[in-house]
Design a binder for these strands. Structure first.
Length: 283
DNA sequence: AGCTGTACCTGCAGGC
DNA sequence: TGCCTGCAGGTACAGC
């Protein structure tokens, strides 16, 4: 499921391959959750790709931007002359396929495919200075590895958690409070920090907060190096799988043994989400 | 105000 | 085989 490391992986690939391409045509196969006029971007050139939380911004040279949120099953796949030899993930059928929602035709015989199996994601074409009109970007909290005021500091993180009466896992998943963390990394970071996900924010000690903050950053960084987690539909900007799913600590490991103490991993539901805990290690 | 539960979607796995 | 149910989870919003 695309979270910060997966979206960062898409961002890197798109920034590398899309930059300098001119959009020649846009074909919308499925208008659900697609807004804005394609006329505003035809003929414009990509100048860079940025990420905010789990959101992507494809910046164009005419002040417009293509804002995309892939939610759980979205994919942005680039194909061009230089990448034609690359083997696609087995989960991507020949493009365009039944899940292709938008096709961008680029100069130089290249294409960008926006696919979304479950149609939860969205794509908005809008002027760059109107990004904050999208509720998601307007209310997004600071994030790990963010720039300037968007960066999640240990001071903000500590006061946020210690002033909250919500379970710590719920706080981590709230994009208004912290951007970029989803269910996989919330589960794994809490396991790494040996903290029970149900613990209320205001019960965490200073030491636990520091450990959790560092676990989050090191896990996210490691996953970025692995190209994200491809346990379900995630593929990178060239349609390839990531490998972090091979390193899951507790996520998805119901009834399997804890790597640390050999106890059985339990699955509970917290804030409506599957939550995995080693009750021996996580207190 | 701030929280919890549910809707939005589709594909797939598992049970019978 | 094939139908049915439950589950996957990021975000928005209704309702408390």
């Amino acid at each position: 499921m695309p979270e910060l490391p997966e979206v960062e992986t898409i961002k890197k690939g798109l920034d590398k391959h899309l930059k300098g391409h001119t959009i020649q045509d846009v074909l919308i196969y499925d208008p659900l959750r697609v807004t804005g006029s394609t006329e505003n971007i035809i003929g414009s050139t990509v100048i860079g790709v940025q990420r905010r939380g789990k959101g992507l911004l494809i910046k164009l040279d005419n002040t417009y931007v293509i804002a995309v949120h892939v939610k759980m099953t979205g994919q942005l796949i680039y194909q061009g002359d230089k990448t034609k030899e690359i083997m696609l993930s087995q989960k991507v059928k020949k493009l365009p396929n039944t899940h292709t929602r938008v096709l961008f035709t680029l100069d130089g015989n290249a294409s960008l495919f926006y696919n979304d199996i479950r149609r939860f994601g969205w794509l908005h074409i809008l002027p760059h200075d109107k990004i904050k009109s999208i509720p998601f970007f307007r209310s997004l909290g600071p994030e790990p590895f963010g720039e300037g005021t968007n960066r999640l500091s240990i001071e903000y993180f500590s006061s946020l958690v210690r002033n909250s009466t919500s379970p710590i896992k719920t706080i981590l998943l709230d994009q208004h409070k912290i951007g970029g963390i989803g269910n996989i990394y919330a589960n794994d970071a809490l396991y790494e920090a040996k903290i029970d996900p149900r613990r209320l924010g205001n019960s965490l000690t200073k030491e636990e907060l520091k450990t959790l903050f560092e676990a989050l950053h090191s896990l996210l960084l490691f996953s970025i190096k692995q190209g994200g987690a491809s346990d379900t539909n995630f593929v990178n900007a060239l349609g390839q799988d990531g490998t972090y799913q091979e390193y899951f600590k507790v996520y998805g490991k119901k009834d399997m043994r804890c790597k640390n103490c050999r106890d059985t991993i339990k699955r509970i539901v917290l804030a409506g989400r599957a939550t995995f805990i080693c009750l021996t290690c996580q207190k």
